[in-house]
Design a protein around this nucleic acid. Structure first.
Length: 780
DNA sequence: CACGTCGCTGTTTTT
DNA sequence: CAGCGACGTG
């Protein structure tokens, strides 16, 4: 976020070329020796272990500036990957300051996914896609899987599509194609059909000319492996590679990176610099492997390791609390952060309140008091474990009239009306996008119900062609009822009409026309519910934001990959966000509510990942505390409403793990027995009870048990072989010829009168001559 | 075919 | 307390 108050940057804004003299260029001034070392060690593999607040981003950006200033490479020859769009944006901004915006930015600075997509688009045909492929989001992904599960007759109650999506994501995160999965990997889901469906899913994506998030990397890996010349092209291009937040990379990202970074004909050593902090690895649930960072020196022989341990952010009390807490983790490289702030600061406040409502009230009061003392709302943040906690704060702040900003909350592009509108745009630009078609074919209502849609589906599946194409064929026949047939025909001609206009007219204008002419706008105008006006407003906003993009494709790419909106940071407002979203940010005052067992550490993390899960939760806590420059205020509610009913909670074990001498306990009076901060003999306290004793009753455990039991039972066949787009059958000869007797489900028995590709004209005794699709008849 | 109602279930974190 | 799917009615 851009609301971080300016850090002392000490970076001259002057042109870099003028700094190329004999002395130290001034962008290197004010750096400590380790930082400087990290920046100037340009050649060969380098691992920078950067603790919280040690100037990691500064090192990365200065390093890039240094490479540019010394003319080792041009902007387009540096590959620089980050984990989030936020981080990418910030780096771009900061580099812009060095070079004064003289160059047109860094074309290869971005998230793994956006760069992955970029590479893939250049060579899409080599992995069975077209360069304008659609990027599917989770929602599309689940809908597609749902269809495949239905086709396989899998009980959806027992094996929900979202769970399968999770399993497949897991495979993709590990860099595994369906063909690489062995029998042992398969047995878990749906009696062993998971791998088979994964395989079908991939094939289906190719037909739809679509890729999901995982594919952006996975298909990239395949591309590089199967096409050495393509890989060589990128070897030639990328002279330097930098990776931010290396501790968060998963196996697929690691493989992708290693292919690009490996020594090659242009380079004897890998010029790769990775920056990370094992204590801030918080994406294990998404497949991140801390191992990647621990293993770096083995992967890249001769790697240099530099540790940044001087913290420029927090007071010594905050740092002490955080360090003490994280020391309870066993699996870590271990670092000793030293404060450079030179200020003891305020103690960590821990407040126990009666319920979450009181918690919101309290924090609201604290904020108002700080505000009265002259602190900016921009300098404060509330960091929650789970997003449902946000609502209570929002409610409270609305009644108080306190300005707030939710970061990463319910996202603009995930709203129904926005997704519908996007589906219209997708189907016009990309006719193979079945998911978009399904989404809008009967929105607004056009009288196309289940019966019609499933007929379209049947035809599409039988011929293995996209829905729109199947529809085109079907409307030429008599399969459909006249009303539906003419509706569909009208819709198709609208698609064509819109596509035509896109050739010549500005896309935002066409988009507006599409929404009007499809009746979509009208639909919401007729809607009398309270949120309809808001939705119309959002649609306008969507059209407005399109104007910033040169092409519709560019716009669609932006929204599928950069799902965050730039929240207006102009106003002074308190930020509310999850702990995950807070990584990389810093604030003077940080409120950390909800430190209760079950919520933080989250029960599910414990259930599903045991000790590793607990340690990851602890790292989250560490991330949370280290966001604070001056004040960290933790709180816990003794009662919290979890889906409707009140439950009493016990204080988080993490509170016990804070050092007593920097903690100040405040109790609002309604405590039951208080919290015990020993802070001494941590080892015994930590081991005093088995943290997982209750594990056997939890749903997560039981689920795991079930999965174990089903493992190894009968599994579906594993289909080997690579996925290739099946060519869309061009004029394949019919199985029928004139004079054949056939059976049609609706019209009964008849005689083939004419054959036209896969369309048949058939004489039925009952209804006369009808045109039907071949896939709708069978031999009697 | 559209719409309403009922009952069930599942609830973390995100590119 | 959601949000979704299943079901029955206009």
């Amino acid at each position: 976020m851009t609301d971080r108050p300016a850090k002392p940057q000490g970076l001259g804004a002057g042109p870099i070329t003028s700094q190329l003299g004999a002395q130290t260029p001034n962008y290197l001034e004010g750096l400590n020796p380790e930082q400087r070392n990290a920046i100037e060690s340009v050649d060969g593999p380098l691992l920078v272990l950067a603790g919280a607040g040690t100037g990691k981003t500064r090192v990365l950006t200065t390093r890039i500036a240094h490479i540019l200033a010394t003319r080792r490479a041009r902007a387009g020859e540096i590959l620089s990957v980050t984990f989030t769009n936020k981080a990418a944006r910030e780096m771009k901004e900061r580099i812009g300051k060095f070079v004064g915006g003289a160059i047109e930015g860094m074309p290869w600075l971005g998230t793994f996914h956006s760069i992955g997509a970029r590479i893939l688009r250049r060579h899409a045909e080599l992995v069975g896609l077209k360069s304008d492929f659609t990027i599917l989001d989770t929602d599309d992904q689940i809908r597609l899987l749902k269809q495949l599960l239905q086709a396989e007759n899998v009980d959806e109650k027992r094996w929900p599509a979202r769970q399968l999506a999770h399993v497949i994501d897991g495979w993709k995160n590990k860099g595994l194609q369906p063909s690489q999965l062995s029998a042992a990997d398969a047995g878990v889901f749906a009696d062993g059909k998971a791998v088979k469906i994964y395989q079908q899913y991939q094939a289906r994506l190719k037909v739809l000319n679509a890729a999901d998030f995982g594919d952006l990397l996975l298909e990239g890996i395949r591309l590089f492996k199967d096409n050495p010349t393509v890989l060589a092209e990128f070897h030639r291009r990328f002279k330097y590679i930098l990776v931010d937040e290396y501790q968060d990379t998963n196996v697929a990202q690691y493989l992708w990176l290693r292919l690009l970074a490996q020594p090659n004909e242009h380079r004897e050593t890998a010029n790769v610099c990775v920056v990370g902090d094992d204590d801030q690895s918080i994406y294990g649930w998404r497949g991140a492997e801390v191992d990647n960072i621990l293993r770096f020196e083995k992967d890249f022989p001769g790697a240099k390791v530099i540790r940044l341990e001087r913290n420029y952010r927090s007071t010594s009390k905050i740092l002490k609390a955080a360090s003490h807490l994280i020391a309870h983790n066993e699996d870590r490289l271990g670092k000793t952060l030293q404060t450079d702030v030179g200020e003891e600061g305020e103690p960590i406040a821990v407040t126990s309140v009666w319920d979450s409502e009181e918690e919101a009230r309290n924090i609201g009061e604290d904020i108002e008091q700080l505000q009265r003392q002259g602190h900016k709302l921009n300098s404060m943040a509330i960091l929650v474990r789970a997003s449902f906690q946000m609502r209570e704060f929002e409610d409270r702040f609305i009644t108080l009239g306190l300005n707030y900003r939710v970061i990463g909350g319910p996202r603009f592009y995930e709203r129904k009306e926005i997704r519908d509108a996007l589906a219209y745009l997708r189907i016009v630009t990309q006719p193979a996008d079945d998911l978009a078609f399904e989404r809008i074919v009967n929105v607004p209502k056009r009288g196309l119900g289940n019966a019609t849609i499933s007929m379209l589906h049947d035809a599409a599946r039988a011929a293995n062609i996209p829905l729109v194409q199947a529809t085109r064929e079907l409307v030429e026949t008599d399969e459909l009822k006249p009303k539906q047939r003419s509706t569909l025909r009208g819709l198709l001609s609208q698609f064509d009409e819109w596509a035509m206009r896109l050739q010549t007219l500005p896309h935002s204008e066409v988009a507006e026309a599409i929404l009007d002419e499809s009746g979509y706008t009208q639909m919401w105008q007729n809607d009398k519910s309270a949120d309809a006006p808001g939705r119309l407003e959002n649609l306008k906003e969507l059209i407005r934001s399109m104007e910033e993009f040169e092409t519709l494709g560019g716009f669609l790419e932006h929204i599928s990959l950069v799902m965050d909106r730039d929240s207006g940071d102009a106003d002074d407002a308190v930020s509310i966000m999850t702990l995950h979203a807070a990584k990389g940010l810093e604030f003077d005052t940080v409120f950390l509510p909800g430190w209760e067992e079950g919520l933080f550490p989250h029960q599910r993390a414990l259930d599903e990942s045991g000790k590793a899960g607990l340690e990851e939760e602890r790292r989250l806590a560490y991330v949370g505390i280290t966001r604070a420059r001056k004040r960290a205020k933790l709180s816990l509610a003794q009662n919290r409403r979890i889906h409707g009913l009140w439950q009493s909670a016990i204080p988080s074990r993490f509170l016990d793990e804070l050092p007593a001498d920097v903690v100040e306990v405040k109790d609002t009076g309604s405590s039951y027995g208080g919290i015990n901060y020993g802070g001494r003999d941590q080892a015994t306290k930590f081991d005093r009870r088995d943290p997982f004793e209750s594990v056997y009753e939890t749903p997560g455990w039981q689920r795991a048990q079930r999965q174990h039991q089903s493992r190894g039972k009968d599994r579906g066949p594993t289909i080997e072989g690579e996925l290739v787009a099946r060519s869309v059958n061009p004029a394949s000869s019919s199985r029928y010829k004139v004079g054949d007797k056939v059976l049609h489900l609706k019209f009964g028995e008849g005689t083939v009168a004419a054959v036209d590709g896969n369309k048949l004209s058939i004489d039925f005794p009952s209804v006369g001559r009808k045109k039907v699709l071949e896939s709708f008849v069978q031999k009697p």
